[in-house]
Amino acid sequence: MNLKTFILKRSIQVVISFYVILSLLFFLLRLSPGDPYSKYIDSDMTQQEIELIKKQMGLDKHIFYQYLIYIRNLIKMDFGYSFHYGTHVWDVIKNKILNTILLFTTSVIVSALVGIFLGRIAAWRRNTSLDAGLTIASLVTHTIFLPWLGLLLIWIFGYKFELFPLSGIYTPEIWLDPECGFLRKALDVMHHMALPFLSLFLLHFGGYLLLMRNSMLGTLKEDYILTARAKGLREKDIINRHALPNAALPVVTSVGLSLAFSINGGALTETVFSWPGIGRELVMAVSHNDYPLAQAAFLLIAIVVLLANVLVDILYAFLDPRIRYE
């Protein structure tokens, strides 16, 4: 099998996987009890009114008929209108996903950079107290319960010391003030981002640190490093020139996948910090039975992650031809 056939084969598989996911989503969402209008027991809506609106939303049709319409609309790239917001699904997602990318993607990148940097130091200074300290610190921060950490941070830095805003993404007073320029507004968003970013950073950098450290230690035992050492090269050169590029590969893959996953945000972080992102929106959409919104958001995430997976596979196949012949 050459690289081309491999890519072709994987691409076909991705299309099939995608189809399975979208069908799965459709039926999972519809099978859960209730419908977008079953919650309104308190309101003045009578049952006849509800039946009428359900009919117009197409919810009275047989589930397989609804499925066919859903597939047809998907082919036309028409995701429909959110039942809850009454606006086009894409309008809702567009706003929320940018906020999510801003927070989560930034935090993945920064924590990966810091993790790799510190992981290299830990591997270099292996078995010293610095290494032990870094390892333990990253284990502890990596396993801390996220929402709890978030709440503590809000309490300490947001409320007790009043260093950062408590929640949300904008200070309305700043954004409404015509005298405040772009810089001031950007700073305001950064200011709001600080606490959620900090908690995500604390949670994630440890993972990358440990991964990098292990990968480095593994590489340092390879024959070519031993050879380099036998040749009498300086330790620093061995680490930076020979070990680092190879050791970084698994870390880079892991970062790549995390980046892809980061667009699904985190319902927990977004809930605790009231960050208007896609993760919280999805939880809400599911609990509101807002099928079009939930489907579209799920699918968007699925496609990004699937593609990232394939890219990683292809990258590996390219670097290591043995994989193709399995």
Binding site: I154, L166, S167, G168, L176, E270, F273, S274
Partner: peptide
């Protein structure tokens, strides 16, 4: 100005802070 909070706790803290 209607500010949207996801949780009661942060709204209460914001109220105490005067925001």
């Amino acid at each position: 100005i209607f500010k949207i909070f996801g949780t009661t706790d942060t709204a209460i803290l914001e109220l105490k802070k005067g925001g």
